[in-house]
Structure formats: structure tokens, C-alpha cells
Design a protein around this nucleic acid. Structure first.
Length: 150
DNA sequence: GCCAACGTTGGC
DNA sequence: GCCAACGTTGGC
């Protein structure tokens, strides 16, 4: 089993939203590296840190699970969608996603600040300067370490 | 809301 | 296939 971190802006889709709907297609990813992680790396049951970005206290707020194999992101075909991609087609879809299901919301946010302050986590892409990936792998050891910060 | 960092696009 | 211009991400 592998571990991941997925970012979402809480104004758009928060951990509470996921808790409410239980399971959700992770649509709107329009970055090839992030797509490749979902398409090629993920398997059902993988652990996901749910990360809130672009908000007052950015950080990890809970855990979700990968709940489907990768499949084409429907929003790329929808001209009314913010995520519409005119260069994609149904026979050659450009963007893939997985469904993600709610598992747990933490009692508190493990803030980006705290993560950055841990020497043990210095190699995480998340805390590296300029990293803008919205889907990234997490080492099993880092996963355990972060859970230990709760 | 600013802007650094970085990814993508498109002219050549 | 280079690279300047442009767009986006996301912390601050």
C-alpha cells in the first residue's frame, strides 16, 4: 500500500465536505505529474493525507482513502465546467482522476509550519520550496511520523 | 492581494 | 526544440 497527500482549497472542497458526501471524484487536477500519480501510482485502499491549501492555516486536516481505480475526469468534457479542456476528447482523455473516500478528520490541523519545523520531514516535496504539486507521494515512514505529531 | 516559483504555450 | 510570455499555485 502506498501513501499520498492531496491538496484542496477548503473554500472549494474541504475535509468536512468530504465527510458529508463520504466519497468524491477528485476532479480538476490539470497537472501532468499529479495526474500520473493518480493514474499510475494509486491503488484502492491507499492512504491519503487531506491537505487544506490557500487558507488561513494551511496543513494536513485528516485522512482519506483511494476508493477507485483511475478513470477519465468527466469535467474535462463539460464546456460549462471550470475544468473544461477543449484539447481533450472522450476517445483520448487527457485527465484522469480517482475517487477518494472519507476516513477521519483530525482533532487539529497539522500546520504546514509544524511540518516545516520537523527535520525528519525535510525531504517531503510538500515542504520544499516552490513545490506546487497538488497530488504527491508520502513515504510510509513520513506517514507514521506525521501521525505521531497528533 | 502580492508575488515567487514553476508549468505550459506557441512563435520562430 | 528553444525560450519568452503568460497563467497558475499557494504561502504569506
Amino acid at each position: 500500500m502506498n501513501y499520498w497527500l492531496m491538496k484542496s482549497e477548503p473554500d472549494t472542497f474541504s475535509i468536512d465536505d468530504l465527510k458529508n458526501v463520504k466519497q468524491e471524484p477528485w476532479d480538476g487536477v490539470r497537472n501532468y505529474q499529479a495526474r500520473n500519480f493518480m493514474r499510475d501510482g494509486m491503488a484502492v485502499g491507499d492512504g491519503v493525507f487531506f491537505y487544506h491549501s490557500n487558507c488561513k492555516v494551511p496543513g494536513i486536516v485528516g485522512i482519506a482513502r483511494v476508493a477507485s481505480e483511475a478513470y477519465p475526469d468527466p469535467s474535462q468534457f463539460d464546456p460549462d465546467s471550470h475544468y473544461f479542456d477543449p484539447k481533450s476528447s472522450r476517445d483520448k482523455p487527457r485527465w484522469m482522476l480517482v475517487d477518494v473516500k472519507f476516513e477521519r478528520k483530525f482533532e487539529r490541523t497539522i500546520a504546514l509550519d509544524e511540518l516545516k519545523a520537523q527535520p525528519a520531514l525535510a525531504e517531503m516535496p510538500l515542504v520544499r520550496k516552490g513545490n506546487r504539486l497538488s497530488v504527491m507521494p508520502v513515504e510510509a515512514s513520513d506517514w507514521q511520523y506525521i501521525l505521531g505529531m497528533l
